[in-house]
Each structure stands twice: as structure tokens, then as C-alpha cells.
Design a protein around this nucleic acid. Structure first.
Lengths: 231, 231
DNA sequence: CGCGTGGTTGACACAGATCAACCAGAGTGG
DNA sequence: CCACTCTGGTTGATCTGTGTCAACCACGCG
């Protein structure tokens, strides 16, 4: 797993393909707040696996640049993406011994990784760190709960609207939405086929809700209408 | 919320409508291991709300007898049940300030409740308790991740098979499966309609995989076939 | 320039939803 | 003890949203 390009941690490595967001509240225990836990940088190419399902969960990751998907796979190829991880996001933190999903890079990606043992050791002495670990898992759980509602009960249009609003919140810069993932990834995230995703996006463009300039370059023109679809 | 029947905690209150399972690993911090946190018993009638979405999450609950569903509701009535909670299960534990789902009793139910503040205070002094809190949230997350795959990518038959195996694991006594929930609840858990659930169960009965004696009384006759359907 | 990957669009199929009728068992009250 | 009712469950007929299959398009790259 660690046969990756290792890069010495330099402060300005954070600038990458995607804009760097301000660090999330629950990634504060990572790097910044605790210099002793600075971690190592590693880079992965497009579609490269970062860790696999059932592998020992010895490291915790933070996206520095690029984008990561975590997913479950059935042997006949069906896939469910649980979450997309963008710069600033922490992923791969487990309470148990092994990872429950596979993580791979969607585009060329740099991550900062920290031994989980170090974090847990730090948590022994500092309740705030223990709390941050818990809060990180709790945030993932909240996302999963929202996503279960989407997958179980929402229509294709509602799902795509929810996706657009989520990505808008997380990676819009200057009114622009630059998606790192392909239509298949979006479909596997939303429990749809890539064709349905494409059709709904075209329909939303027709309706003037968004503008497409190149498949991955989206401008939201009417967030209110999108919020209306999102229920 | 606490205008419920309060019962003094007596040791043998644990025996109820449903058989009591051995306590789960991550409910150990509850009651048994820490006598100071014994908690209060409360009872709720069928379909009574235990707590609502967005209410302050001041208490943590353990099912003593009965069964609880936690769900999200859209204003047009669509509902997604995130989990069923059976005797021995802990639910309602949040890391943030408010509950993210609504909890209500499926049948007449008794729960033991503990102030969350007490648990967090105990966690300050005892790392094992802090770990148990984290592990509880992590277990919920694992369940949600598995359920996202089910909701996003599995067929009706696969979903029902998964449901039967889950319930079999959690509440079969003497080869018998006594479901506390109605077909609509099962549908809202699996992202299906109650009619589809009913049809699939009938089909499985036809195929000899299970026996139905009364809609809620199920005997699994071929777990291997069910596991095959579950992928 | 040709090729390959990713995206769009169309025609059609089908799993599961919807609508509706009917059925079974548990209370309830005469 | 039997009608009556009510809730929950089953089954059938039909509809529809999304999947499937296939053709085509557009851009980027060697």
C-alpha cells in the first residue's frame, strides 16, 4: 500500500489540482493543531487504489489535492460509492481493525497520512483529540444517513439535484463547479446509471437550472429551483 | 419527551416481549460495567415517538424490551427507516447537539436511558468509555454503509433476503423469527413498497426457502439459499 | 489524422410502483 | 357466541421511471 511516491511534507504542497478549502472543523486534529502528527504525503494516479476493503486500517488520510471515492463492490460489478472526498476531507478513519470500503483516487491525488496508532495514542492524553476522532466518524454517519434517504426514497431528479447542491457547497469556486468525477461515478454514488445521470443533467440544462460547458464544467443558474427539487 | 411512564430500575426488567440477547460489545459502557450509570427505565406504546428529528440529543437509549425504528421523513410522506433497534441495542447516541432521525416504538417498548452528559463526563476519566462511545457510532456507520449498498444497488429479492438474514441473526429464538414490524416498516427500511415486500416473501415461501405461519412468524428453511441471494 | 475514452441521445424492456379488490385474524360489543 | 369492524396482509392488473442496449458524438492525445 505504501509503495507510493512519498514526498517530504512542505507547507505549500496543499495547492493542487483542486482548490483547497479551509480545513474542516473535525480535521483540526490532523496536521495543523498537532505538529507532532504532521504525517507523510503520498500521491496516487487516476484510478489507483489507496486502500482496499478489509485491509488493516493502520492509516488515516486527508486529501491534500485531487479527489477520492470510497465504495463497496459486488462481485458482479455493481458498485456503490459511499462518499467523495475532496481537499480538506479526512477519510479512512476506522474504529475497528479493518477498512470497510475501498478507496481510490478519482484523479491524480495527493494525501497526507498519519498512523492511526499515533492518533489514538494522542487521544489517550487529550480528550479533545478523542472527541475529534468520534466527531469525524459521527459526521460520516450523518452523511450516510442522509444518503440512505436519497438512495431509498428519492427520484432521479431529486438525487441529481442533491448531488449538485452538495458539490456546489464543497467545491464551487467563482460560481464554477468543476467535477473531478465521471458520469459513472456520479451514477454509482446516486444509485443510478450513467445514462440517467446524463439525461437528468441535460434536462436541467434545458430547464435553465444549470449551464454545461464541457461535461464536467457546470454553472448553477438557479439554486433555489435545485433546493426545491431536493425536498 | 420524558412524560413517559418511569419505572424504577429493577434487575429483571430486562425480560420483555422479545427475548433478551446477550449485551452487545459496544453497549458494555451502558449499565453493567458502570453501576453509576444505571439509568432510568421508560416505556412507550406502539407507534409512540421516543424522540424527534432535530430535538436536542440529551439522552442515550438502550432497548430493554420491544423494538424501535429510527427514520427520516420527507414532507410528502416518503420515509426511510435507517435501522431497527432490538433488545440490547443502543440508539440515539449523537456526537453533535441534536438527533438526526426520529425514533419511535414499533410495539410496546421499554428503554433504559442515560444522560449523555454523564457518559461524556465518564469518558473524560476513562479512555475505555470514550472508546466505547466512538465504537458505537462506528458500528452504526458500518451498518449504514452496508445499507447504502443495499438501497443503491440490490434487487428486491436481494434486499428481502438481506433483511431476513439480518433479523435471523438478531432475533431468532428456537429456529423461529418473530417480526415486530409490519410490511410497511420493512418496505421503508428496504426502499421498497409494502406490496413488493409481501410478493417477495410469498415467492420465497413458494420456493420453499421459508415458511410463513401468520405474516410475522417466519421459519427460515434454507439459509444457504438466502445467503446466495444476498450476494 | 485516427483512435480511444467519456458523454449524449434514442428505442425499447422490465422491475417495481400504483391502484384496487379481496382476505384473515383480532378485538369489540350486542 | 356470533356478527361487525378494523387493521394488516395478499394478490391481481396495469403503469411508469429507470435500466438496457446501441448508435453516435466530441474532445484530447499519441
Amino acid at each position: 500500500m505504501l509503495s507510493r511516491t512519498m514526498i517530504a511534507p512542505t507547507p505549500d504542497m496543499r495547492t493542487g489540482l483542486l482548490p483547497t478549502l479551509p480545513p474542516k472543523a473535525d480535521s483540526r486534529f490532523f496536521s495543523t493543531a498537532h505538529p507532532g502528527l504532521l504525517g507523510t504525503l503520498a500521491s496516487y494516479g487516476k484510478d489507483e487504489e489507496i486502500y482496499g476493503d478489509d485491509e488493516p486500517a493502520d492509516y488515516v488520510y486527508e486529501v491534500v489535492s485531487g479527489a477520492v471515492r470510497t465504495c463497496k463492490l459486488l462481485d458482479d460489478g455493481r458498485r456503490q460509492i459511499g462518499a467523495f472526498h475532496l481537499p480538506g476531507d479526512v477519510f479512512g478513519l476506522e474504529s475497528g481493525p479493518a477498512h470497510r470500503l475501498t478507496a481510490d483516487a478519482i484523479v491524480d491525488t495527493t494525501v497526507r497520512l498519519v498512523r492511526r496508532r499515533s492518533l489514538e495514542a494522542a487521544a489517550q492524553g487529550d480528550v479533545r483529540i478523542a472527541n475529534a476522532l468520534w466527531a469525524t466518524t459521527a459526521r460520516d454517519l450523518r452523511h450516510a444517513e442522509d444518503h440512505m434517504l436519497l438512495l431509498g426514497r428519492k427520484t432521479a431528479k431529486e438525487r441529481v439535484a442533491a448531488f449538485l447542491l452538495e458539490m456546489d457547497r464543497r467545491l464551487t469556486v467563482a460560481g464554477m463547479l468543476d467535477l473531478p468525477m465521471c458520469r459513472r461515478d456520479i451514477g454509482d454514488y446516486l444509485g443510478l446509471t450513467l445514462e440517467t445521470v446524463s439525461r437528468v443533467l441535460s434536462q436541467l440544462q434545458q430547464e435553465g437550472v444549470l449551464g454545461l460547458s464541457g461535461a464536467r464544467h457546470i454553472v448553477l443558474r438557479n439554486r433555489q429551483r435545485l433546493h426545491g427539487m431536493n425536498i
